[in-house]
Simulated assay, not measured.
Amino acid sequence: MNIKKLLLSQIEKVVFDLRYDFLYEDEYGELLCQVIQRDSSGSIESTPISFHLRINEEKGTANPSTSKILTPSWPSSLS
């Protein structure tokens, strides 16, 4: 398993456990990742966090950069 797949699977697992959805777009070796919250009809209600990941598979490194952080509404048990 490569680093990108490992990171995406772990992020997705955590996000789903918190009852959010996880979207990502892979462009030119950089991942744009978004954690989203949906309303009861399935529409996107908010995007608590989005970030970019640049992954160098050859070196085995990942460099995250947060592009937008809004006030997240995480469950109080995590605060």
Rank of each mutant, 00 (worst) to 15 (best):
N2Q: 04
K4G: 10
K5N: 15
L6A: 13
L7R: 09
L8N: 09
L8K: 07
L8T: 04
L8W: 02
S9Y: 11
Q10S: 15
I11W: 15
E12G: 06
K13D: 08
V14E: 07
V15A: 01
V15F: 05
D17G: 04
L18V: 10
Y20A: 15
D21Y: 08
F22G: 02
F22I: 05
Y24P: 03
E25V: 04
E27R: 06
E27G: 06
Y28E: 09
E30D: 02
L31S: 12
L32S: 11
C33N: 06
C33E: 08
Q37T: 00
Q37H: 02
Q37G: 02
R38Y: 00
R38G: 01
S40G: 15
G42F: 13
S43Y: 10
I44P: 02
E45K: 04
T47F: 04
P48I: 13
P48V: 15
S50M: 12
F51I: 09
F51A: 06
F51T: 04
H52P: 05
R54F: 09
I55A: 01
I55D: 00
N56A: 04
E57P: 05
E57S: 01
E58Q: 09
K59E: 13
G60V: 10
G60R: 07
G60K: 09
G60T: 11
T61P: 03
A62Y: 03
A62N: 00
N63Q: 11
N63T: 06
P64S: 12
S65V: 05
S65L: 01
T66H: 08
S67M: 12
S67C: 10
S67P: 04
I69N: 12
L70A: 15
L70M: 15
L70H: 15
T71H: 05
T71N: 07
P72D: 02
S73R: 14
S73I: 11
W74K: 05
P75K: 06
P75N: 12
S76M: 07
L78R: 00
L78D: 11
S79G: 07
S79W: 07
